[in-house]
Write a protein that binds this DNA or RNA. Structure first.
Lengths: 182, 182
DNA sequence: AACTCACTGGGCAGATTGTCCACTGATCCA
DNA sequence: TGGATCAGTGGACAATCTGCCCAGTGAGTT
């Protein structure tokens, strides 16, 4: 509906290699919906030749658009029902790296970002209970270089992590449409 | 090495169904490392019978420990190189739900949580450029019920999202060890 | 002692994979 | 305009894997 965002195309990365076909998007969507689907079955559902699907998949993997088909593990199902976002302030002298490494050694730390703004690091952590969260946070504070932390607990997740809408959006913006030739 | 955390076992959920075997953990790890691996190959690598792997997988899927094998898509590879965390304050009268629904309609919003603390919602968004991020944030602000937003940009991601350390940690804590019988 | 559960090792038909091939259109360029 | 290149088609092949069945064994429970 809306015209292309004016910034579109200003970054070289998104012009050349980083673009996706409508067929690519449909393929990804299909695989997302029914993950352990074979190449042959995909080709049938998409109405294209098997070789095409195979080639597309190879290309998507080679370009890094699809990074893998890892099993998606639910921390909740493992008993880690509490999710929190912890922002850290660190002692700048030490630098980010040693702190990140320290955090990486804590299994409950699922993700770490360096960020702009008042804090230095943002990490997502899980725990079995609120009390258990305290234990995890204590471990975080114990990491050398961490000065102080501040946590917010995620009460609910109305929109769980997803990429599909994005995938389906790209071909639209790029004007790429796959047309079956025969 | 360390004794069980004192809180462990206080939550009923983590006692009964929510536990994982050492074999389960190795299976998940194996699949994570080489995702499109067949059941047969897994059984070979793990040194167990094919039926066992098949049964374990079915069980992990049925219990929701493994939620799927979706293709992992990299937003960066699609040109969305900017990641930001946006916290929202909403007009409480409206409630969270309508806002979440509004946010869900924006493809660049990858994830939404309701949170404790000064703000009401936390969401992860991506954009093609910093300027493009402004466009996305504008869309967020336009969602009915959103009062104000505050964003931090993720400069780097020293620890990308991962669950494996957690998976490998569970059997240790539960004292479950898989021992091959024959 | 009987039972249940999980795992083993084997066998089977049918489907899928990886990998070839020749052929067709579309696009690009000298 | 002719030639080259690229992506896709449709078909073929042997090798492999899948889903499903079975009987037997060991461990833990009741």
């Amino acid at each position: 509906m809306d015209n292309l965002p004016s910034e579109f195309g200003k970054t070289p990365e998104c012009l050349y290699t980083m673009t996706i076909d409508d067929l690519d998007a449909r393929l990804i969507g299909l695989l997302a919906a029914e993950p352990r689907l074979g190449v042959l079955e995909c080709s049938r559902r998409l109405g294209v030749a098997r070789g095409t699907v195979q080639a597309r998949l190879d290309r998507l993997l080679a370009r890094g658009v699809i990074t893998g088909f890892g099993p998606d593990v639910s921390p909740v199902a493992l008993g880690y029902t509490v999710t929190a976002f912890v922002t850290l302030e660190i002692r700048q002298e030490a630098g980010h790296d040693p702190v990140s490494h320290g955090l990486a050694r804590i299994p409950e730390v699922l993700e770490v970002h360096t960020i702009t703004g008042g804090s230095d690091l943002l990490c997502r952590v899980v725990a079995r209970t609120n009390a258990d969260l305290q234990r995890v946070i204590d471990q975080i504070v114990d990491v050398r270089g961490v000065r102080r932390t501040s946590s917010v607990i995620a009460l609910d997740t109305p929109v769980p992590y997803r990429v599909l809408p994005l995938v389906e959006d790209v071909p639209r913006h790029s004007g790429h449409q796959y047309v079956r030739s025969t």
